[in-house]
Nucleic acid binder design. Structure first.
Lengths: 196, 196
DNA sequence: AAAATTATGTAGTAGCGATTACAGAAAGGG
DNA sequence: CCCTTTCTGTAATCGCTACTACATAATTTT
């Protein structure tokens, strides 16, 4: 049984990517429906037929981001030989993400929803939950490092995990402020001093 | 020659403090005129007569913040005996600022304007300039540390200054995310490892 | 080919948020 | 006591933004 009715005049997956780019570049609140529809090249009714609302489009964009653009750092975290190399690679991958495009500075998960309008609170909490999960994965990687002997038994794992979460947040903020790759990479060295 | 006309029915200085508190708690965009006038207990015309516009009220609030609530970290930076102690005290003072009130989490200069609406760009740039100045003062303090012999000549001063600026940004972001004082203070230790 | 189904384009609506027009109130100056 | 000046309260206005009603177009099913 084929799909009934008039077929959609645009590629929904491609549209979602553009939605992700716009939210990434501007954040949820500053990205206006106008920006979204213009980027896709459709009119509001088509947008609403395909994505339901601005909020649900954002949720889909976040899922796509986690699966694609934002997956690099977590991949590096798992792939690194030692905990220290893994953290280092994660931070460098975060810099890649933060500088991927000229407009989109910083990580969508960190900067996507920053203020406290009551109606955007659910989206703020969504991102906050993902950030928390990220710190959890860092913690797991450090634990593995202790288990595998490349970190001392005395390592304060929760503190260090939250610390590297903080470094990634700072990378995003400085990227948003227009920092160069060079100046972002310079932050990695000092932050790794905590793992000596 | 005394002041002509009907006298203002509220204390302007007190009102500015409340304005600062509201902007501090919610950020520029999320703080609505309604919140501002309600906090002061006046109506919109009184607000506009006294402060001109939301933008100029924000500018005044930022000036007040720099002079009062936000001055602690910079004071500690200058007062510390050695560069390391000064940085440490600055970071702890940043935590105090970030946790000053239950609602206002994080530094106004860091979180006050986060997104990219074209019309708020001037305010974003204002805060960005102050942040840059802050990093400049950290740099000066580190230079002094080298000059006074408590830091090695080989210290990479620009990098470390930007690094501690990043740590302060991260403190604000984590405070905004609801971090406890304990978890914020735990970040200070690892970040000081870069000064060993 | 007619009916059913889904998408699109035009042109709105609804509601909110910053700002202000205007009339009245409270002060000083003559 | 009137005039000028400045502030205050009510009640808009203006603009913007998410969202949609409705007529029409493009498909599939029968």
């Amino acid at each position: 049984m084929a799909i009934r009715g008039r077929p959609r005049g645009f590629d929904r997956d491609l549209a979602l990517q553009k939605i992700m780019d716009v939210f990434w570049a501007k954040g949820y609140e500053a990205a206006q429906l106008n920006d979204l529809t213009a980027a896709i090249g459709i009119t509001p009714p088509s947008f609403y037929a395909a994505f339901g609302s601005k909020q649900s489009a954002f949720r889909e964009a976040v899922s796509l981001y986690v699966a694609t653009a934002g997956s690099g750092p977590m991949h590096e975290l798992d792939a690194g030989e030692t905990a220290r190399l893994a953290i280092r690679a994660m931070l460098l991958a975060s810099i890649d993400v933060a500088l991927r495009t000229p407009q989109s500075n910083g990580c969508l998960l960190i900067l996507g929803v920053m203020n406290c309008q009551p109606e955007t609170r659910p989206l703020y909490d969504l991102l906050k939950g993902i950030r928390k999960e990220t710190v959890g994965r860092v913690r797991a990687r450090l634990q593995r490092g202790v288990a595998e002997g490349d970190l001392p038994q005395t390592t304060d794992i929760p503190t260090l995990a939250s610390y590297y979460g903080a470094i990634m947040q700072a990378i995003s903020m400085q990227a948003r402020d227009g920092a160069t790759r060079q100046s972002l990479e310079a932050l990695v060295g000092p932050s790794l001093a905590a793992l000596q």
